[in-house]
Nucleic acid binder design. Sequence first.
DNA 1: AAAGGTCGGTTGCGTCATGCAACCAGCCAT
DNA 2: ATGGCTGGTTGCATGACGCAACCGACCTTT
Lengths: 154, 154
Amino acid sequence: MLPRTYDNQLCSLARTLELIGDRWTLLVIRDAFLGLRRFEDFQKSLGVARNVLTDRLNRLVEQGILRRELYQERPERYEYRLTRKGVELWPAMMTMMKWGDRYLYPEGHPRLILHKDCGGEIDERLHCSKCGAELGPTDVYVEAGPALASNEAA
Amino acid sequence: MLPRTYDNQLCSLARTLELIGDRWTLLVIRDAFLGLRRFEDFQKSLGVARNVLTDRLNRLVEQGILRRELYQERPERYEYRLTRKGVELWPAMMTMMKWGDRYLYPEGHPRLILHKDCGGEIDERLHCSKCGAELGPTDVYVEAGPALASNEAA
DNA sequence: AAAGGTCGGTTGCGTCATGCAACCAGCCAT
DNA sequence: ATGGCTGGTTGCATGACGCAACCGACCTTT
């Protein structure tokens, strides 16, 4: 689906969606933020078809959102890590996630994003609801929320 | 594509993407924020296939992101307006747009989002870059930026 | 040295969402 | 009654996707 280009749309949103606006891409990026790096890890986590995953990882590398890094020679094995450009997608991803928390899981969020310094939960404008600090990807840790707790997932 | 549900993903991001994570949906919402309300307007603006547009509008209404409002009887004509739930997507949309501004149009943004009170441009955390105020959808107006100016688009 | 396991894919096939264009129904103006 | 506007629906062809099998390079085990 990605080949779609919104030619007539001179719009940053449309062009951003050309890169990450498909079924899987943003979930790959989410997993990258959760620390996944290898093909098999992404595949198991998402259950995505392997050919599609190959395609998405390659596109993300082409776009400079992920980079391949050699972690083993013979056989050559690469892992996929977020570039700065990729890390900068964190606010967009978080904001969507917080919207989902509010409107799709009002009774209890699947994941809690907590401020390392004070343990406060992140709010919808990505500030700490406890101390008010503006938060970025390195300021938080992730914990299973009420909705996930029963599943005992990783 | 929307029927895709990420069953094994207990995640607000995945669930949000089930609703708005397809080729067109978020662009429909963008157009709604730009003031479009009618079927034909969306269709012309996006160039999307009419059956797909029908499908997307219906889904958005089902999800409570848009609502149909009668604006004319005989023949019955409805327009599509954002609900509160829909309006709350503004930060997510804006954040993606600002990412695109930065990484895809570094030389000049297609659209400028400006603070009504002081004319300052919105920054990547959705504050006014001039006066620092936290901005929401009703605090701003949209202007063609450098990249759009030459096209003289609406 | 043979067998099996791991990792990171590629290939082939069938299906379903999509793009496209034609058509239609209700109503209005002339 | 003819044509136009709005808001769709229908039918067909394409192509992105899901799925499962296969593959190559290497390692470990027996």
